[in-house]
Structure formats: C-alpha cells, structure tokens
C-alpha cells in the first residue's frame, strides 16, 4: 500500500515474518484440520449426525484428512525458513520464562517474546504430540486387528479424550488469532508492521538483519 498525499501517519516499515512456503504449510494444515474436526463432529454429535447423515462419506473424509494432516508440515521441512522457525519454536529462551510468569500472574502490558512467544512454543509442541497420537489410535480403530494387545475400546477412549482436548486447544488458537488482526495479516500476507512486532515480539523485532519490505 502507498501512503496518500496528506496522510498524517508516517509510512510504517513492514517486517517479513513468514515465507510463502510457510504460509502454504499453515493454510493446508488448517484446511485439513477443519475437514478432520468437521467430519468428526458430524460422526460424533447426534444433532449433527441427524442433520448430515451420510455416515460412510464422513468416515472416509475423516480418515483421509486425518492421515494427510501431518503431510504439509513434513513437506515444509524442505523449506529453509520453515526449518529455522521450527528451531525457534523449540527453544525456551530466558525471556520466555518472563512471558509465562506474566501470563500466570495476569500482569497487563507487553510481554517479552522472540519470533514466537512461549505460548506458541508450547502449543506447537503439544499439537505435534497430539496429532501422531490421534493418527495412531485412529489407525487402531480403522484396522481393528492390527495390534491385538490394545483393545478397540482403549483406542477409542484415548482418541475421544484427545479429540476433545484438541478441540479446546485449536478453538483457543483460532480465538487468539481472531482477536489480533495484525497477527492474522502476518499469516495471510507474510508481513507485519514494525510497531506490532516491537509490541508483541520485542526480541525478534530487535534482531539484526531483519528484512524490511515496503511500507504501509
């Protein structure tokens, strides 16, 4: 966007946050997750089951969207930017401790964070553990006799309870994104304003060698 003549605001530099490949990984994962949870709801909740029926179709879509769910992330490993962000997500820096303490105490105001805050790091790790668990228990329900040592009832129980936890956590993830248009813009366009980055990801904004792209 170009600033129009007479604009009172100084054009603000944008920071590059996500590459095209990373956004593609996020978008395809989100689409598969929506398909998987949507069909799960149609299989699981009687009112939705009565509304949509077509149980076999729901089962097939659920199984395949679930199986394919890790694929975008695995393909994304080919991207250098994605691998670099995974390394960032993995490391609990000293300021992440401050971030967590501030959240626990409900301290208002900006909290220190790198490119990803401590909450995002924990979310990433958690969902990376929950999805393979769903795949494993889901496959046990699909191929009933694959592992006779584990009863079908046990697999279903773990699948159901983990599904509920994922529903809560992913809902919270979407709610936080809904409340922060700038964060959504970062995922949509790949760039964020420097002001937003300074406020929400101060350590990252201060890093040397930031790529600035155009202005808003």
């Amino acid at each position: 966007m170009t600033s129009t003549a007479g604009s009172t605001r100084r054009p603000e530099p944008l920071l590059r946050r996500f590459s095209r490949g990373e956004r593609l990984v996020h978008r395809s994962t989100a689409a598969l997750m929506l398909l998987c949870t949507g069909t799960a709801a149609c299989l699981y909740f009687p009112p939705l089951a009565q509304l949509f029926g077509r149980r076999h179709l729901m089962v097939v879509v659920h199984e395949w969207s679930g199986l394919l769910l890790p694929a975008p992330v695995l393909l994304g490993l080919a991207s250098r930017a994605f691998r670099a962000d995974l390394r960032r997500l993995n490391r609990l820096a000293p300021y992440d401790g401050q971030w967590l303490r501030a959240v626990r105490r409900g301290t208002p105001g900006p909290r220190p964070a790198g490119k990803f805050n401590a909450g995002q790091k924990i979310y990433a790790g958690w969902i990376a553990g929950a999805v393979p668990l769903m795949t494993f228990t889901g496959l046990l329900m699909w191929f009933t006799r694959a592992l006779p040592a584990i009863s079908r009832a046990s697999a279903i129980f773990v699948h159901d309870v983990t599904a509920l936890a994922i529903a809560v956590v992913v809902f919270a993830h979407i709610r936080l994104a809904y409340r922060d248009p700038e964060a959504r813009r970062g995922m949509r366009t790949g760039s964020v304003t420097t002001a937003w980055a300074r406020k929400n990801h101060s350590q990252w904004a201060e890093e040397p060698g930031q790529r600035r792209t155009g202005s808003s």
Binding site: R91, D96, K115, I122, G125, W126, L133, T137, V158
Partner: peptide, 28 residues
C-alpha cells in the same frame, strides 16, 4: 541461533506422546 535454551517444544511433544501411551495402557 537467534534463540537458545532448553528444547521446550520437543519436551512438550514427547510428554504428550507419553501421556497418550499411558492413556492407552490405563484406559480399561
């Protein structure tokens, strides 16, 4: 590396997998 510290995401992920395994064993 721009950020360093203990591998939090890996630990959370492995804990979740462990919890799941424990869930399968104790489910009955």
């Amino acid at each position: 590396e721009p950020e360093s510290g203990p591998p939090i995401a890996r630990r959370v992920m492995l804990s979740m997998l462990g919890l799941g395994a424990a869930g399968i064993v104790t489910a009955p």
